[in-house]
């Protein structure tokens, strides 16, 4: 429960634009433990997406150290990193990113098919993932035959199939209406609380962020606040 899943030590990231350097992250130090659901908030340009990309190993920090599950990911070569991500990290995007010509089941199985397994060998595994997101009855439908909320649930099932202990989500409810978004967030919260998955979600929506155990707010590339309901008194309502 208390294993360190993500550790960032003095992480900074600077982008070069012509001759001027633009700081995107400055001096971020952060530890996220197993089973925690963390929301990262901040205005556009605050560095929240850069932070998620650094955690995912999609962007290298300019200075500082990033480790996932105790492994320093920014000193791995591309192959090592790809393999590491495939085993440890699932991604959930705002735009679902499903392959339009494949069925829900095939989309869910995709990470295993890329790992050169045959569909018939992984079918039951993919079905089990669709069961978790309550979509088993739609397994033969293609993305365009599914609603937005259903497509996002397929994407979550796909993120789960590697048994990845870490899920990274970028505005997962950004394209969904309020009630459908709630279903997705309740599901994510359940994955963290009941299955001990660690989730890091970037969002600008306070209602979505409120599902997390902790909200980290960024401004100008720095953490300006870490908020959890346990650290504050329970509000009284009249």
């Amino acid at each position: 429960m208390h294993t360190k899943v993500i550790t960032l030590k003095s992480v900074s990231k600077t982008y070069l634009q012509g001759k001027t350097s633009i700081p995107a992250l400055s001096n971020i130090t952060l530890t996220i433990s197993g089973g925690e659901f963390i929301a990262i908030m901040g205005a556009s340009g605050s560095g929240k997406s850069t932070l998620l990309h650094v955690i995912a190993g999609l962007t290298n920090p300019t200075t500082g150290e990033v480790s996932l599950f105790g492994k320093d990911i920014h000193h791995m070569n591309d192959n090592q990193l790809t393999l590491f991500r495939r085993e440890h990290v699932g991604f959930i995007f705002q735009s679902f990113n499903l392959l339009p010509t494949m069925t829900a089941l095939e989309n869910v199985a995709l990470p295993l098919l890329i790992g050169r397994k045959k569909l018939r060998d992984v079918r039951s595994q993919a079905e089990a993932m669709l069961e978790i997101v309550d979509l088993k009855s739609r397994q033969h439908h293609r993305p365009d035959e599914l609603s937005g909320g259903q497509q996002q649930r397929v994407a979550i099932a796909r993120a789960l199939i590697n048994q990845a202990p870490l899920l990274l989500a970028d505005e997962p409810t950004g394209n969904l209406d309020s009630k459908t978004g709630e279903d997705i967030l309740l599901l994510m919260r359940e994955l963290a609380s009941n299955q001990n998955r660690t989730i890091v979600m970037v969002t600008h929506d306070p209602k979505a962020a409120a599902y997390a155990d902790k909200i980290i707010t960024l401004s100008d590339g720095q953490i300006i606040e870490e908020l959890s309901p346990l650290s504050t008194q329970s509000p009284t309502l009249s």
Binding site: L186, K207, A209, A210, Y211, E225, L227, P229, T232, P235
Partner: peptide
């Protein structure tokens, strides 16, 4: 404003937590 924002946000987390438990 920032302090007040945090208070509302924490309140939202408590209420949302309650929703999760009702659902469960």
């Amino acid at each position: 404003i920032q302090a007040q924002y945090s208070a509302y946000m924490a309140q939202m987390m408590v209420l949302t937590n309650r929703k999760f438990h009702i659902e469960q």
